[in-house]
Structures are given as structure tokens and as C-alpha cells.
């Protein structure tokens, strides 16, 4: 019984500490500079990916990098304000497929691996960005 209680207690503590971490996702990603650097690697990953590059052929890459860094910074609770168009407006007419969306997710995972972002922070960022699937795919 005592063992069970202790196991439960430590599980609750683990969950609580994981919960406490959630508020510092912005810090875990290295704040403004870390996010800028991570997004730069992400953009490079996309640029080298023949599965999706066609969608970026006419894009202003510097602007794309600036806007996505700003957007991610805001989404993870950083002191930024994304003032660009919403995701539906941005992707309408692009015809992004489910496969292409997943390819972009893989590019982001590769970038996060290169920056040695912990799995827990990777998952939180992916969870936040996965919510845009419905606004991005098939527009």
C-alpha cells in the first residue's frame, strides 16, 4: 500500500513538474534569438526538400523567416506580436496536401534535432503548430 502511495505521489509530482515546464516553452526554445536561429534552420530544411520547395519558389525567404519566427515566438508565449495574415489567408490557393504538411513537420523536427531541443519542448511546439493543420491543408 505504502509503495502504491509513493508511486502515485511521485507520478503526480512528475506530472506537476512537467506542467510547470509548459509555461517556459519560450525559454526552452532559447527565447527570441533561439527561435530566430531555429526558424532559420527550419527554412533551410524546407529549401532543400524537393517534396515542398515548389510552394516556396516565389516566396521572399527573408520575410518568410521573419514572419514565422514572430508567429512562433507569439504562439509559445514570448513577448512578440504576430501582425501578419492569418494561416487561412496565407495558404489559400496553395493546395497544400496532407503529405506536404507532414513533410514540413518533418523539416521542423529535423531542425529541432539539430538545435538539440529536448523532446518535451519539441512535442509542445509540434502540438501548438499541429492545430493549424485544418487551416493550412487543402486550401
Amino acid at each position: 500500500m505504502k509503495f502504491l502511495q509513493m508511486t502515485l505521489m511521485s507520478f503526480v509530482l512528475l506530472l506537476a513538474s512537467a506542467g510547470a515546464h509548459a509555461s517556459s516553452l519560450y525559454q526552452e526554445l532559447g527565447e527570441k534569438q533561439g527561435i530566430d536561429d531555429l526558424m532559420a534552420t527550419f527554412v533551410l530544411e524546407i529549401a532543400e526538400d524537393e517534396r515542398v520547395i515548389e510552394h516556396f519558389e516565389n516566396a521572399d525567404i527573408d520575410r518568410f523567416h521573419r514572419m514565422i519566427s514572430l508567429h512562433v515566438c507569439e504562439l509559445v508565449g514570448g513577448p512578440c506580436t504576430y501582425d501578419g495574415a492569418n494561416m487561412i489567408e496565407v495558404h489559400t490557393g496553395m493546395g497544400i496536401t496532407r503529405t506536404e504538411f507532414n513533410a514540413i513537420v518533418e523539416n521542423l523536427i529535423n531542425a529541432m534535432e539539430q538545435h538539440e531541443i529536448p523532446v518535451s519542448a519539441q512535442n509542445q511546439l509540434l502540438d501548438i503548430l499541429a492545430d493549424f493543420h485544418g487551416e493550412i491543408v487543402g486550401r
Partner: peptide, 10 residues
């Protein structure tokens, strides 16, 4: 699947 479930694991 929950991308960031308990323990921030999938």
C-alpha cells in the same frame, strides 16, 4: 495520438 500528453510525451 496526443503530441504533448502527460510528461510532455506523445
Amino acid at each position: 495520438a496526443w503530441l504533448a500528453g502527460p510528461l510532455e510525451r506523445t
